[in-house]
Design a protein around this nucleic acid. Structure first.
Lengths: 136, 136
DNA sequence: CTGTATCCTTAGGGATACTG
DNA sequence: CAGTATCCCTAAGGATACAG
């Protein structure tokens, strides 16, 4: 990507470099909140990303240690790593923010309510489910 | 921007559309965690954004209601709106994540520790300070 | 199905000059 | 200082064909 190294020591910037581009975050979202975990699954997400873009992102995210393949071989499903799973609180806050500021948002009300009321409990619960589901 | 409307009802996607590009988030960061609040201040941030890029982002962020001018006139400083201020929890989680996964990150240890230990208290405190500082 | 490669177009953005 | 405008070029990414 040769992005003239806009690197700085800022943690916000680091986060952006790691998963800050839109397509990457959508892949994370899919792995975290849907049961999509294969190449074609991701392609079928409603945002409609191009195949080459998806391939690029999958490679980057693996290189950065946010996702991995479960098992080896052609159709090995993608899964979150611990590092990727640690984005759960970030995602929840993103969802909460959008729910608050976008009337069109599709996040289930009950879910959003729970983010606010029992954040810790929700995180704990989801985290366990995800670790299970992603083989961690 | 004519971005072939990749719009979806997904709250994550909405967040991305609102402030998901790198430059925008860096402006938010500056307003939230530094005392930079002017055009040249932003330019002097270590990531070094171009003038035209900054101008674009400032316009977009205003249009989306995340930032505003305090007062009118040429050098009126930029400030967060309530909507922008609501990104505080998101930013804190981003910082926490980076601190956890990037050894080079420059976030003060004590700050990060506080995010983990007394998140609610920290948010409340920062929120008050910010509302004060940004005239809300 | 799971990807990779190629082509081609456009928009993002660096550099820089210019304006009030 | 506080921005806007222009130039120009690279890279992101849509469309599509191809490969294992």
């Amino acid at each position: 990507m040769q992005r003239t190294e806009r690197r700085s020591d800022c943690p916000v910037n680091f986060a952006l470099q790691s998963f800050g581009d839109a397509w990457s975050l959508l892949v994370i979202r899919d792995l975290m909140f849907t049961d999509r975990n294969s190449y074609t699954d991701f392609l079928n997400a409603e945002e409609g990303m191009a195949t080459n873009v998806l391939a690029t992102r999958l490679r980057q995210l693996q290189a950065r240690g946010l996702i991995r393949r479960r098992g080896s071989g052609r159709g090995a499903p993608y899964a979150l790593t611990e590092k990727g799973l640690d984005l759960l609180p970030v995602m929840l806050e993103l969802i909460a923010w959008s729910a608050q500021h976008d009337r069109r948002t599709a996040a289930p009300k009950a879910f959003v309510a729970r983010i606010r009321k029992d954040r810790e409990g929700l995180i704990k619960e989801l985290r366990e489910q995800l670790r299970e589901r992603h083989g961690l």
